[in-house]
Nucleic acid binder design. Structure first.
Length: 536
RNA sequence: GUCCUCGUAGCUCAGCUGGAUAGAGCAUACGCCUUCUAAGCGUACGGUCAAGCGUUCGAAUCGCUUCGAGGACACCA
């Protein structure tokens, strides 16, 4: 319908000898009295034509002739408002019921390969709230973009080499020695979480003191594998299924890291200072240079990460999205410098920064850290409030909002979570349809020709546009807000209108209407990883 | 100190290519179950969009300044 309005305006402008198609903008007014669609084109043309906007609007109005438009009004200061024939809304119902779980799909992403990398937590502990947020965002975005025809790869990068894995091995070893009544020091920067103790326990239960003479590699491997499996398992429970897991170790094998540094050097971005080898990323996007090879000849994390992104570029994506916590934001410039220095286009990488989730207990902020072991895990969250509520909760907010999370409060308030409001609408409809299903989808609505019906129909009709905009803006919460509004409109309709009645035609039309609503709710919730129940 | 993000109702948040009278939920007050699920519906109350200046026919939205909150500025990752 929007396209139709645009075309009609285009034609009118051509008739008037104006060439300004790109200025046409169509809005849906907040107030019903301002029409179904509206354009501000007259206001925009004031400067070009040097005329009063009301005059311009009137002129455009005169040159529009379209039978699907019932009425055109010009309103101060120069808006042109369109009141359209609603039959297209009924046609849309047919579309919904035919396309079913495909309703809302589009192909704006056709032939575009996208990589979304998210969570990528080090396998040195289990997933916590911040990962829950990043996970909900990344996976929902992937679902939305797939729905829009993009070829999406969801990727998890495993930091399975380097210092932190060393610390993990040492931490487990230390806990294990404790169990054997021996002393082994906890490393600096060691991990104190329960999961570390559990792993040590497991070793002790299975092998007693036979691991005392095992070398540290053993503890490292075992710990890493256990934790990684746990992470993957938790993510699956959270309805996230990755396409690819990429290991830092594998990357280091695949690309000779010294070669990467040589290439950087060849391109003029490497120098030596104070016994270390530096990356002059300040020549590119960063404000400071950073070390690539430390004085002790070991590599910094930057090298494998540059290699990892080099690998992603080699895989030929049109766009790569990385999702980081804001605490890593300083890292973006370094990374992009690395990409550029190897001759790739850094604009293909988009880094999304999510505000960290702060943990609140008794109204005070608690420092979460793996080191102290003080945190709320993804598993705690799922156990307490369920996957639906958790996914919905984190999909509700834009990435930019700082969130304070209180698990006790969340527990107490979990039945106030709007996810139940939306699911309730779905369940209500399901229970009616169980009672009586639709007979057919009519060409026209004979009995439901009122604003209440059109309110619902318009919301259902809006879904495909909402999907598009959520994908283009990369904002899953647009979907969440939309589905809430849809449920809201349905609940209001339900309270006002009796669905099942003696009037067979009216009943059928109502059933068609609510079935389409149910399908749309289902499709929208699916995009944010929520599965509505048939019964509540 | 430099850089990044944020500041909208008592609280939690939408509002993002600038549009018409700034919206929800929670909380508060009051109504609505003899009829398909009351985890629902309706009404009321609630605002200097942090402040100031600027750009514009028009600013919560764009620009600058100030104030406030959080974060980043390692030869840790």
């Amino acid at each position: 319908m929007k396209e139709l309005i645009i075309n009609v305006i285009k034609k009118a402008l051509t008739k008037l000898g104006l060439d300004c198609e790109d200025k046409i903008e169509i809005n849906i007014p907040k107030l019903k009295e301002n029409g179904d669609y509206s354009t501000n084109i007259a206001l925009k043309l004031v400067k070009d034509l040097n005329k009063n906007p009301m005059e311009i609007a009137a002129l455009i109005k005169e040159n529009i002739d379209c039978e699907q438009i019932n009425k055109i009004e010009v309103k101060n200061p120069g808006f042109i408002n369109f009141f359209v024939d609603k039959s297209y809304l009924i046609d849309n119902l047919k579309k919904v019921l035919n396309e079913k779980e495909n309703y809302g799909k589009n192909d704006i992403g056709k032939n575009k390969k996208i990589n979304i990398e998210f969570v990528s937590a080090n396998p040195t502990g289990i997933l916590h709230l911040g990962n829950a947020r990043g996970g909900a965002y990344g996976d929902s975005l992937a679902r939305i973009m797939r729905f829009c025809g993009y070829d999406v790869t969801e990727e998890y990068y495993i930091n399975d080499a380097g210092n932190q894995i060393n610390n993990l091995g040492e931490s487990i070893k230390s806990r294990y020695y404790e169990l054997c009544n021996k002393e082994y020091p906890m490393p600096e920067g060691g991990y104190f979480g329960n999961e570390i103790k559990e792993i040590a326990n497991e070793i002790y239960e299975n092998y007693e003191d036979k691991y005392l003479n095992k070398d540290i590699e053993c503890f490292k491997e075992l710990g890493k594998n256990k934790l990684l499996n746990k992470i993957i398992e938790d993510l699956k429970k959270y309805r996230i299924n990755y396409d690819i897991f990429t290991s830092e170790k594998e990357i280091s094998k695949k690309y000779n890291l010294n070669e990467i540094i040589n290439t950087l050097d060849k391109n003029g971005y490497v120098y030596e200072k104070d016994g270390a080898i530096w990356f002059s990323c300040s020549k590119l996007y960063d404000d400071k240079d950073h070390v690539l090879i430390k004085e002790d000849k070991s590599l910094t994390y930057l090298v494998p990460d540059i290699a990892y992104h080099y690998d992603k570029y080699n895989r030929g994506y049109d766009k790569m999205i990385d999702i980081f916590g804001t605490d890593h934001h300083g890292y973006v410039a370094r990374l992009k410098s690395g990409i550029k220095a190897l001759g790739n286009d850094p604009d293909k990488l988009e880094v999304k920064l999510l505000q960290l989730v702060r943990l609140v207990e008794n109204n005070t902020i608690v420092k979460m850290s793996k080191r102290s072991g003080k945190s709320v895990t993804l598993n705690d969250l799922i156990n307490e409030i369920g996957v639906n509520a958790a996914r919905y909760y984190f999909s509700k907010y834009s990435l930019d909002t700082q969130m304070d999370f209180d698990l006790n409060l969340a527990k107490k308030k979990s039945n106030e979570n709007p996810v139940y409001y939306v699911c309730y609408a779905y369940a209500r409809i399901s229970s009616i349809l169980k009672e009586k299903d639709i007979i057919n989808v009519p060409e026209k609505f004979e009995t439901l020709n009122n604003d209440d019906t059109y309110n619902v129909l318009e919301k259902v009709y809006a879904f495909p546009e909402i999907v598009k905009s959520a994908a283009l803006k990369e904002m899953p919460h647009i979907i969440t807000n939309y589905v809430y509004e849809l449920a809201n409109i349905f609940h209001a309709y339900y309270s006002k209108v009796r669905i099942l009645s003696d009037d067979e035609r009216k009943t059928n039309e109502n059933l068609v209407l609510i079935k389409a609503v149910r399908q749309t709710i289902f499709n929208a919730l699916n995009l944010i990883g929520v599965i509505p129940p048939e019964k509540m």
